[in-house]
Amino acid sequence: MSARAVDPRRDPIQPGPTDPVTITFEGREYVGVRGQSVAGVLLANNVLDWRTTSTRHEPRGLFCGIGVCFDCVVTVDGQRDVRACQRTARDGAQVERQHDELPRRVEEAGS
């Protein structure tokens, strides 16, 4: 276990009751706390990577956490380029990995 939610029983802020929120990522359901971002729900479930890069095909996820780096973009309910750290998770949101292959050259035209 690495990334995780703070255990409410040990949290010094003495959290009150919360509501769950459930999102789907790559076909699996993940439960978080209502009010969390998409990135928050994934991290709370120890999911660290949700994007694949175009050139080296490497995994990426949260980096700056404040909406600046755009490394954490995902597709949410069919809409691309959504920063997971900025978008509040809604119940039932369908989150998909974003992986854009570089275009292949259009073969010699007219042939």
Partner: peptide
């Protein structure tokens, strides 16, 4: 992560990165 990300997750989401 950036240091700020760790703090944002801790303060804004109660998540340890």
């Amino acid at each position: 992560f950036t240091a700020g990300a760790a703090q944002a997750m801790a303060k804004g989401e109660r998540i340890a990165v």
